[in-house]
Amino acid sequence: MRMGDNNEGGLGTSKDEPQMNQDEMILAQQRQIEKEISDSIPLVGSLEPLESLNKEYLTDTVYLEKVKDLAKKYKFMRRTRPDGNCFFRAFSYANVEILTGKKEEFEEFYKLAENSKNALVELGFQQFTVEDFYDTYMEVLKRIKTAPTVEESKNELHTLFNEQGFSDYMVVYLRLLTSGQLQKEEDFYSCFIEGHRTVADFCHQEVEPMYKESDHIHIIAACAALNTGVRVVYMDRGTGKSCTEHDLPEGCTPTVHLLYRPGHYDILYP
């Protein structure tokens, strides 16, 4: 679901009402929709059998066929809240989840994360403003890494990612890392940016603000920033009986698997 697409129609402004209130009404309605979503859908859900998707498409043969195809490759899924941050939250969660139980790889990732703040500061981000998000990011990683068993690590991960404060800070920091990556490789990424914007402008408008949705370019940069590959499985109403798979960066061996349905990402498990 695209946040912000829900504003059209339904407001029924009559001519008698003062014009100035309309924008405020739209904002209020948007907040209301956001609240309904946040009251009913957890930030990151529990593991569910893939077949739970069928419930959403009871009469839709196109999707049911595709779920069938998807079930050949994936057994489980984990839903994320559709709040515009779903890619960053799903990617961040799935990436750390895979690392639990892989001691050496987790240490390696931890080091990469540890060095990331200085890299951002060198790129011109302000130390004082980046620090809070970085500190929380490292605290979350540390708490998951030092839990005594894999089971407890996974529980810690799930608890922290469902606490708004921690979870949103993880999203902010990954957004900053993604922005940093885009700006570091400006020459490369500038070719993919639409609308005559500089890479820095694009980052300020589309990457760093919360609740802004992600596109291909975000995903490629986020993968590069975390040194991880992701497979995005596209499921839409297009023709064909199977879903389309995209590995990002191209040709990688993906560790994180995400299900993309127009406007939203969830996590997939083989």
């Binding site: 302000q126 004082f128 980046v130 902010v172 900053l176 300020h204 408008q205 603000p209 919360m210």
Partner: peptide, 14 residues
């Protein structure tokens, strides 16, 4: 321009 909108890195100082 949407370029100078609110960002989480803004502080009282900025």
């Amino acid at each position: 321009k949407a370029s100078e909108r609110w960002l989480p890195v803004h502080t009282v100082e900025t």
